[in-house]
Design a protein around this nucleic acid. Structure first.
Length: 403
RNA sequence: GUGGGAUUAGCUCAGUUGGUUAGAGCACUAGUUUGUGGCACUGGGGGUCGCGAGUUCGAAUCUCGUAUCCCACCCCA
């Protein structure tokens, strides 16, 4: 038997219902916030991700599905959504056009990782990207939007917040941190030694207790923000407070992708195991310029759909549509004609075999139909059928031609 | 990539120190008077015990390899 590849799932039945329900809700909310759908290719030039996500990240360093295509192009299955959207934004010259552009997308992403719960090699994200707004109000709106989506889905969460600083304050902080960590280099774990060389701020969220003990006196991002970053962060907190969004400031929250600056946030759930991040995002004011576009402030987030799936509280499914069954073989043809006719407007379930009342009733309940019709010799003779409402148990008689 | 656990019917799982024909519940299917409810009862179908080797008179059971899933790490949504 040929099986699907490791970490690649089929989505069907109940899962598919949850999946589409999520997309529906998220799309509805994003539309209310003024976002428009954008579809970008699954396959992009490798350089795009190397430049945007950054070679220091594991995503680019070791998790990309990268290959040379038949035209000798170095290409990758996208490991995340932002890079492609930014590329499209620049390619369509929207950076030159000016103004505000807001996009949402959803689709498959690919990362070559060891799978576990909430981590797949092909997985799905829903994300939003906003271009052209440098106000921190937009950051706040994004967070409120994620909150709206999660609330509508009945998903509880914790929101973690941090500021990563910008071009003014980040570099000097960076230096301070490196020299601090360097001074106890012998005591930190191997991973941190590696991080120090590749992406120093990542040492901050190391899970090793010994490392954390050392880092508790390390300089904090938040204490070293420049005036702009600091006041924006304060403003952000105030807006969230004023709008009833609970959050915790986590000075060790570091986003994994190189392009973030200033606002960084992560929504986590305590109910789905160790892969607890259900949404993450932040501001990336320099990325558009970095990808050869005209400097444009931007902020965005992405949600991991598979991680959300098991947390979604589905609305109660109501009885819907018809069940039409035949009592005897002579009635089968008329039954199918009526089914066909009704299917132009309603969901209709049927059975191709003649059955007694009880068996049809069982089918109707299984199909969760609202209305129930039986076709037998009586109906053929009288030209009338009885429609039974399975909820309130009432019955109405109609002529077949009016059905 | 590193370490650990698991894999038996469509699903959830039993299966004795290695010993006849591998079981249950749910699901499926048929019947229990061919016209009023989801129930109940009685049958039926369905398994290369993940896959491949090995040990043995004999393997779901022991050993090795391999695939996948799960857990932790790394990292991330």
């Amino acid at each position: 038997m040929i099986q699907s590849l490791r970490g690649m799932n089929d989505i069907l039945s109940e899962d598919y219902k949850r999946f589409t329900y999520f997309i529906d809700v998220a799309t509805k909310v994003a539309t209310r916030y003024g976002f428009h759908f954008i579809e970008t290719p699954l396959l992009e030039e490798t350089a795009l991700f190397k430049r945007s996500v950054g070679e220091s990240s594991d995503i680019v360093g070791k998790e990309m599905y990268q290959f040379i295509d038949k035209g000798d192009n170095d290409v990758c299955l996208r490991p995340e959504g932002t890079a492609g959207v930014v590329r499209a934004f620049i390619q369509k010259k929207l950076d030159r056009a000016g103004g505000v552009h807001r996009f949402f997308y959803h689709g498959a992403m690919f990362r070559y990782e060891r799978p576990q719960k909430g981590r797949l090699r092909q997985f799905h994200q829903f994300g939003c990207e906003s271009f052209g707004v440098d106000s921190v109000y937009e950051d706040a709106s994004m967070i409120m939007m994620v909150s709206d989506i999660l609330n509508e889905l009945g998903i509880g969460y914790r929101l973690q917040l941090n500021s990563l600083g910008d071009n003014n304050c980040m570099p000097s902080y960076h230096e301070n941190l490196v020299s601090f960590v360097q001074s106890s280099k012998e005591a930190i774990c191997d991973d941190c030694v590696r991080r120090l060389a590749i992406n120093p701020i990542r040492v901050l969220d190391c899970k090793n207790d010994r490392c954390q003990f050392i880092y508790k006196d390390a300089p904090k991002l938040i204490d070293n923000l420049c005036k702009d970053c600091d006041s924006d962060f304060e403003k952000l907190k105030n807006i969230l407070d004023a709008n009833g969004i609970n959050y915790e400031v986590d000075t060790n929250l570091v986003r994994g992708l190189d392009y973030y600056s200033k606002t960084a946030f992560e929504f986590v759930s305590d109910n789905i195991g160790s892969q607890s991040a259900i949404a993450g995002g932040g501001r990336y004011d320099r990325l558009v310029e970095f990808l050869d576009g005209k400097a444009t402030p931007a902020v965005g987030f992405a949600m991991g759909i598979e991680r959300l799936m098991e947390l979604i509280v589905m609305p109660e499914v109501k009885r819907d549509g018809y069940y039409i069954g035949a009592m005897d073989d002579e009635a089968l043809e008329l039954t199918l004609s009526l089914v066909h006719k009704k299917r132009k407007t309603d969901r209709v379930a049927t059975d191709y075999k003649a059955k007694n009342f009880k068996n049809h009733m069982k089918n109707a309940d299984k199909a969760n139909a609202k209305y129930f019709c039986m076709i037998g010799s009586n109906e053929i003779k009288s030209g009338e059928i009885i429609i039974k409402d399975l909820e309130d148990k009432s019955e109405t008689t109609v002529k077949i031609e009016n059905f």
